[in-house]
Design a protein around this nucleic acid. Sequence first.
DNA 1: AGCACGCCGACT
DNA 2: GTCGGCGTGCTC
Length: 715
Amino acid sequence: MHPKAEKEDEAERASDDAPCTVQVAVHTPAHSAIGELLSYRSATLLAPGTLVRVPLGQREVLGVVWDRADDTAAQAPVQLRAVAGVLGGVAPLGADWRALVAFAARYYQRSLGEIALAALPAQLRTLGPEQMARRLRRPATQAEQANAIELIALSAEQESARAQISSKIGPFLMFGSTGSGKTEVYLRCVQELLQADPAAQALVMVPEINLTPQLEERFVSRFGAAQVVSLHSGMTNPQRLKSWLAAHSGQARIVLGTRMAVFASMPGLALIVVDEEHDASYKQQEGARYSARDLAIWRGHACGAKVVLGSATPSLESWHASRPPSPQDPEGGRYLRLAMPSRIGAAALPRVRRVDMGQQPHRTVFSAPLLAAITERVQRGEQCMVLLNRRGYAPVLTCSDCDWKSDCPHCSAHQVFHKIDRSLRCHHCGFAQRVPRACPACGNPDIVPIGRGTEQLEEQLAALLAGVQRADGSPVRIARIDADSTRAAGALQSQLAQVHAGEVDVLVGTQMIAKGHDFRRVSLVAAVQPDGALFSSDFRAPERLFALLMQAAGRAGRDAAWMAERGAPCEMWVQTYHPTHPVYEALRRHDYPAFAAQQLTERQQASMPPFAFQALVRADARTQPVAQGFLTAAAEAARAAALPGLEHVSLYPPVPLVVQRVAGVERAQMLIESSSRPALQHFLAAWQGVLRSTRADPVHKGLVRWLVDVDPLAI
DNA sequence: AGCACGCCGACT
DNA sequence: GTCGGCGTGCTC
């Protein structure tokens, strides 16, 4: 956990112009037969980190000159090809960036080149030398200076957090309830840092692209547009290159972004903020499955930057890592916990109301008390939010006569009924078709939706509130925000603007509306049927549900002055068949610490994370037996070879994934668990080669791919 | 991953 | 008779 590559005198080495061999990282796939680094001839000794173009087979690709990987470097072919050219004008990537890339590749079981090249803007690969030179000559945007903002005094809690971040080393876990002003603390820390050191840079990450505009707005208005760049996958390639170059050159002092930004080259990096650190979006779910939050911790440690994680509902991993020292545990955790329990302006947390759906008429969607509460709010001119984590109209259609269901032909999942365009759509593979006029199996024209999604909720709510009038006598306005309604570019921003402008009375949506957006006039938030997560097979489901409901509750009553004027507390409604479940009890008291303590006790007793370390190996194949057979064979080969670390590692039998077939591919996975992270790492590293040779065995013909997920979020 | 080479079906 | 399907194989 401490590479801190010593600063070599790169300039001196680069000036040596004897012809020599250089090691280059290129974009090779994870488990290809090509080794980690390729050797090339060069007329001059190139400094590690230099961007070069090198010939590879029939094409020419971008590569990064790497430090000689100790001299066990496989004897290269006799005839080395020559480096085709150096990308002029771009400084070599620093030793700390290379150390981060090397660590991520090792830890997440991917090739160095894959991580390194994926961390660079795509245009570096495609632009020719002339285009590149032109790009570099382009003057940086001359933006206006930051507005001299009258800074509002920090609350005592905010000030205490700021002071501790300023004076201690960290890493820090800022545990601040929604509305406690975490962002203002980030801003002050960044400000202090930039003022103290003219070369310092700060990296601030948020979980979703959707949240970057409002963050950018706050940072730009405080620091000026010249200092701030964004880095996320919603940007065009030219924009991304521009931001990346600004960060790499040190010209941009602040980089805002999503998980990919953790790999930004920042020579002056001195502070990393991970906002909403519990959010699952920080874990990449395809390709290299890295956790940007965990890499941020590692990177900060390696390069001496402070790291601040922030959340109102921290991940249990971070909560556990920030436990204070106690008599039984004099060391405590590695992180320093900073608590900010109060809402700014003394705005009260919403009152939580549970409706026991067992007491309601069968198949009730909106219970009478909830409907009455919504009606009352709307009549008073207030806004309500209704949360349902399922888009579409109904999750499945079925025939009333035979047992036909709208199953996806390519996946082991139902196709979801979307009434808006009368389509059936599979949310796993995207396969879509028109709703049949009659049952495809028996011809019965009576096919009916089962269950409900946001579309149906919107429709039912409209019917239920049809007779209700707003204060001025006009009808109630209902809107829906989910992945379907926001597909078009800019749709989310314009829909949010409508809500902010007060043009919507009741907003229906998926968890998309629970995250971060600041709805100032919302006085009621309702979760219509959140119970699904209570009895999920995924041991992290309660944690996620609690975070989602807390976050949703945090949408209500954010405007303290308005709340005071209003005179009544905001409300968070939960319709449930299990009103006394510990998750809801903890929610009612807004008591994350109690919830976390209870969950951690369970996890400890069951030896689950954060008290154990896990990895998944997944196999995709034409048939389920092939997928499972590959995993079984690889596990047996590991045992037969007595791989290092094996004695401290448990390999579980392969099982099909919950959705076992997607787009015609059968999927199975195997859980690997250990109480020791190093043992798990040793084992996985050694197993990599075994997995590769197992795959080569023709017995496993039909295997499509295999992949390793270290520290998986869902099992 | 690309991009070759290589051996079997429907078109000018 | 060619154009083109994607099934193995290689890239310093």
